[in-house]
Design a protein around this nucleic acid. Structure first.
Length: 424
DNA sequence: TCTGGGGTCCTAGGACCC
DNA sequence: TCTGGGGTCCTAGGACCC
């Protein structure tokens, strides 16, 4: 099964504000830049996924629509609750993204699957208020196909193609670009060969597919045929960790860039330690507005390789500053900065160096304490001076809803309208 | 005026080895 | 005149996903 939350971010907003139920609503990306989640009403207005907000601001307003700045603390917490509901049915779950999970029910019959899906859907809704669509099929790719259809159907939003005959019928009417794993480039290429439906793709010669679309394409075709090539993945430590933000307003001085980059390093290192990893290579970049006309677009990046892998925020901040020294050019209006930690290794598997020292125990304890404090105080506990205090570069975020479930100061107030004597 | 952020996997080609 | 065969490792870039 593929269980996927419907318009997830929009649904999260609606759970805590039922007045939004029938209104067109959209959720914006960081810096209130792009539209990254749309309610059905907004989709019906023809607004595409990922569209720049400023281009559709008026249209949304004219339909009495409402927009929200991304509230990932809320969405992340709601996601955990949805996943907990799914795990209450089986441990065979792969959390695929913030709003979807693959679930394996090997050996369960067709009809039982249908009932099971309904029970899962109902429990998720009861526990969280989030509506989901469920696709059922013999492989991940076919479950994705089924889910795609489930979403477009009203009713119970469950679609089952575990039956072979049903698969044939569905694939014939399924556009090739809607298949999971077929992006814009491949869609064009496939259509160029006259392959325009999932059925046609299912029937191609497997060797030809391999030659033209690599092993990835071969797996895709096999999956469509019902031969499983993609297993349920366990949660693995990340191989790279990134943090970046577009600035709320342009930044032209080096000090502020250094603060922004230090902020990103601190975020990444906290995530790094959380998965018990250390980093070998740091990559830092800055850039100006890439959409602006003319040729004053400037972007550059620099790399720092640590002799011994580290997870000490202080060391990585020092490194990011030396990177910035290499790439900073005065006289530009910068609009974005970011870092990527890559070549990550597990903490107990680090390669020693004859000349350099590994992280000291003293510093490791310090990091541990900082992480504990920040977890306890919602990331408002301790930070490095290098991150700065004004943070004038912070992204715009004009329409954020309260963090209803994770922040003491923003909890929902349920009884303001109730007279005191009834409240008891 | 205004355009996001965070990931994974695969391949070709270059460099090297004997 | 004529110049083999069999490997490994690394990286940049391109494709994809949400």
């Amino acid at each position: 099964m593929l269980i996927d939350c419907n318009n997830f971010y929009c649904s999260c907003e609606r759970v805590f504000n039922p007045k939004l139920a029938k209104l067109p609503i959209a959720v914006l990306s960081s810096n209130d830049g792009c539209i990254i989640a749309r309610s059905l009403e907004v989709k019906a207005m023809g607004i595409p996924m990922g569209a720049p907000y400023y281009k559709y601001k008026q249209l949304i307003k004219s339909h009495d629509g409402k927009v929200f700045s991304a509230n990932f603390e809320l969405y992340g917490d709601m996601s955990r609750r949805v996943m907990r509901a799914i795990y209450s049915f089986t441990p065979n779950v792969e959390i695929y993204s913030i709003d979807e999970a693959f679930v394996s029910f090997d050996g369960v019959g067709h009809n039982e699957l249908q009932e099971l899906a309904l029970a899962i859907k109902q429990r998720i809704y009861q526990w969280t208020g989030i509506p989901v669509s469920i696709g059922i099929g013999p492989t991940k790719t076919l479950a994705k196909v089924a889910n795609h259809i489930a979403k477009k159907q009203s009713g119970d939003y469950i679609f089952n193609i575990s039956d072979k005959a049903k698969q044939q019928q569905v694939l014939a009417n399924f556009a090739v670009e809607d298949i999971w794993g077929v992006g814009s480039k491949w869609a064009l290429k496939l259509r160029g060969f006259g392959i325009n439906s999932a059925m046609k793709l299912c029937q191609v010669d497997i060797k030809w597919m391999r030659q033209n679309f690599s092993v990835v394409g071969e797996r895709l075709v096999r999956e469509l045929k019902g031969i499983s090539c993609l297993d349920l993945d366990d949660l693995q430590p990340k191989k790279s960790i990134a943090s970046s933000r577009s600035f709320g307003k342009a930044v032209n001085n080096k000090e502020e860039l250094a603060e922004a980059l230090s902020y990103h390093v601190a975020r990444c290192c906290a995530k790094l330690r959380q998965q018990n990893s250390k980093v070998k290579v740091l990559y830092a970049y800055i850039r100006t507005n890439r959409f602006r006309e003319g040729n004053d677009f400037y972007h550059d990046s620099a790399l720092h390789e640590f002799a011994v892998a580290t997870s000490d925020t202080g060391l990585v901040i020092k490194a990011v500053k030396s990177c910035l020294n290499k790439i900073f050019r005065a006289g530009y209006d910068y609009t974005k900065a970011g870092v990527i930690l890559t070549d990550l290794v597990q903490a107990e598997q680090i390669q020693q160096d004859f000349f350099a020292k590994p992280d000291s125990e003293r510093n490791s304890s310090l990091m541990q304490i900082i992480d504990d404090v920040n977890r306890r105080y919602c990331n408002k506990g301790l930070f490095w001076g290098a991150q700065g205090v004004r943070q004038a570069w912070k992204p715009r975020c004009d329409f954020r809803s309260p963090r209803y479930t994770t922040n003491w100061d923003e909890l929902m107030v349920a009884d303001t309208a109730m007279p005191a004597k009834e409240a008891g």
